[in-house]
Amino acid sequence: MSNADLAAPSLLSRINLQRYVVYIGFLAIFLFFAIVLRDSGFLTVRNLSNIVLQTAPVTIMAIGLVFVMSAGEIDLSIGSIVAVSALAAAVTIGQYGMVAGIIAGLGAGFVIGLINGFLVAYVKLPSFLVTLATLGLFAGVSRSMTDLRSIPVTDSLFTGIFGSGSLFGIPSLIWWTVIAIAIAHIVFRETRFGAHVLATGDNARAAAVCGISVPRIRLAVLTLSGVIAGLAGLLYAGRLQAAKYTLGETDLMTVIAAVIVGGTLLNGGKGSIVGALVGSLMMGMLNNGLILMGLSVSDQMIVRGFIILAAVAVSLREKNR
C-alpha cells in the first residue's frame, strides 16, 4: 500500500457532484428563470428580495434540521411546532404583551423538542416514529387551541421585529436569516458540540467509546430543532400579523429538500448550514418562478417532488460510494 495508489482515486472522487450540486442547481435554476421569465418580473429587485423574505422561516427551520439529520435523526414535527408556537405567541401577546409572547412561542417549541428528544434519546424510540406521532399530535393541539380560528397579532413592535420591520434599511427577516445562519454555521463547524453531532450521526458506537454522551447529543439536537421551529413560528406570525393552525403545515417537504440538496446526508455524519441556506433559497426561487410561469399548485408540487427525488438520489449515491 503506497500513498499514491490510495490518494489518486479518492482525490478525483472528492471533487464530486454532491458537494457543489446545490450551487450548480441554484445557478441553473436562476439562469433558467432569468431567461424564461425575463418579461414576467422575475429579475426585479422587488421579486428577488421577496423570495428571500418568504424563504426566511424555511431557512430557519432548515438550520435545526441540519443538526438533527447530521446526528442521524429526523424531525418531522417541525411544521406542527411552527403552528403551535405561532398560536401560543399570538394568544399570549394579546394578553400579556410582546416579551411574554416571545417566551411562550419559543417555550412551546422547546417543550415539544424536549419531548421528542427525551423519547428518542432515553426511551430509545426511532426519531422517525416519535416525530411522526408528535407531528400529528401537535397538529391536533394547534387546531383545538383556538378552534381553528386565526388570531391577529397587533403588537407593532413584535410585527416589526419578526416581520415587516427593518434596521439600517435591511428588512428584519434578512437580519434573522443572516444572524441565525452565521451563529449556526460557527456552532456546527467550529465547536465541540458540532463535532460531536457529526460523530454521533456517523458512528454512534465510536462516539460513545470516545466518551461522547450520545443520548445527550440526540436530546440536544431535537430540542434545538424544536426551539428553532418555534422561532420560525414567530417569524410567520410577525410577517402575516396573525397566527393560524395552517402555518408551517406544508413546509416539511420544502425544508427536508433544502437540507438534503444543501449537502446534508440523510443518514447522518455530514451536513452543511450554508448549503441548507442555498438549498432553501433555491426552493424559494423555484416556488416563485413556477408561480410566475403560471403553473398550477398541483404542477408545482409535482416539479418539487422530482427535485427532491433527484436530491435524495445524489445524497445516497454519495453515502454508498
Binding site: A195, L198, A199, A206, A207, V209, I212, G269
Partner: peptide, 15 residues
C-alpha cells in the same frame, strides 16, 4: 470505532 466520514484528525481527537 472510527467515524468514517470525518477526517483522520477529527477521529484522533474525538471526544
Amino acid at each position: 470505532a472510527l467515524a468514517d466520514q470525518q477526517a483522520v484528525y477529527m477521529n484522533l481527537f474525538l471526544g
